[in-house]
Simulated scan of single mutants.
Amino acid sequence: MSFNNANGGRQLTDLLIIGAGPYGISLAAHAKAHCLTYTLLGYPMHFWKHQMPQNMFIRTHPDSVYLSDPHESFTLLRFAAESGIDLPVPLPRPLFVDYATWFAARTGVRFTPEHVLQLSRTADGYEAVTEGGGVYTARHAVIATGLQHYSYIPDTYDGLPPGLVSHTFALTDFRPFAGKQVAVIGSGQSAWEAAALLHMAGSDAELIYRRDAANYREGQSGSELIQLGETFFDLPLEQKREKQVQPPGSAAAFLRPYVEGKIRETGNAVVQKAEAVDGGKLRLELSNGETRLFDHLVSASGYRIDIGRVPFLEQRLLELLEREDDGNGRYPKLDAHFMSSLPGLYIAGPLASYSHGPAFRFIAGVRKACRSIIPRIVRSMAHARSGSS
């Protein structure tokens, strides 16, 4: 794995890739294999390293966890074999980060480790300005960022002091909650993980959720989600709408021993009112008529994907982007090859999940995105060269 020097040069490359997680790394591997020049902007696997709890697991079976190169040569199974390790089930998150680092090294991916401050259009294509003052231009650009811009906390908690409420996003150190009473609101994987990690850190946690009871699911292979990613775009509209509806929250069955018998659970309840009270406490009024006092609340309320919340997109560029008819205009409209309404601007990952389906909220869509985007860019460049000759 190697790094580019951010020298601020304006050399025009074929491709800008914004986001250095699984999608960005895989796109770079495909670009390199197709002899495209590229700049991969972002800190390698930053979200996975620094904004997710490291002592928890990936719920998808290791057989369906991988990054993508053109020949599918550098798989998680190959990494395990070459590293002399047995892949545990479930898969620890740090092991996936190690795999991504190995993958990048084996495929020759090069990083420019800087955050992008602004992406804008130019006469030749697109320009990215970085935190270090670098200016990078390319004929094409791919936005391949993850969920970091979209964390959602319900309006019920508006007005609470910041010290009393957190979102599960970026909550990685639970030691400060030792000896404290903490409410975890939600019924999905992130709620159960947070509750388990709070208990392990010595806090008195309580899970509060609207379901009647916990919803545990056995380990998911991920193969069905991957297949859906391959076919979703061409489905009839009614089938797309059915697939786009997210199922009720569930937790992986491997979390059961971390929670059951250790953490209080209150089901069939919704927080109707939350207020700060004397002594730095938080008072919750629940729909079942009960009240609770806590030191802190953790909202496992998920994410609301919205391209308008991507901080580095120039306002003029945002205005020009055509949106999907999702009722809110939060998703960019993408074609079969993930290109937006702006020529040469492609979008992968969660922002593509309305056009291309729920696989793209996760790494299950990596292969489809790479095999669609990079060949399309190669063809468009060949067409441009033949037209100018």
Rank of each mutant, 00 (worst) to 15 (best):
A170E: 10
V165R: 00
D158N: 15
A183I: 13
V184K: 02
M200S: 14
F174H: 03
A191V: 04
L171D: 12
L160Y: 02
V182W: 03
Q189I: 08
A194C: 14
D204T: 13
Y157C: 06
A191E: 09
K180C: 04
T168K: 00
H199C: 12
A196F: 08
G188D: 04
H199A: 13
R175V: 06
V184S: 04
A170S: 11
S203E: 07
V165L: 08
H199Y: 15
F177K: 05
H167M: 02
G179P: 15
L160I: 12
T156Q: 11
S203G: 13
P162R: 06
A178C: 08
E193C: 07
T172W: 04
D204G: 00
G202N: 10
A201Q: 06
P162I: 01
R175E: 12
S190F: 05
F174E: 00
L160C: 07
D158I: 09
Q189H: 15
D204N: 01
P162L: 03
T156C: 14
T156E: 13
Q189M: 15
P162F: 04
G163C: 03
T156Y: 10
A183F: 14
G163T: 05
G179E: 11
Q181I: 14
S166G: 06
G188A: 07
P176Y: 11
R175S: 15
T156K: 06
F174T: 03
G163H: 13
S166Y: 00
L164V: 02
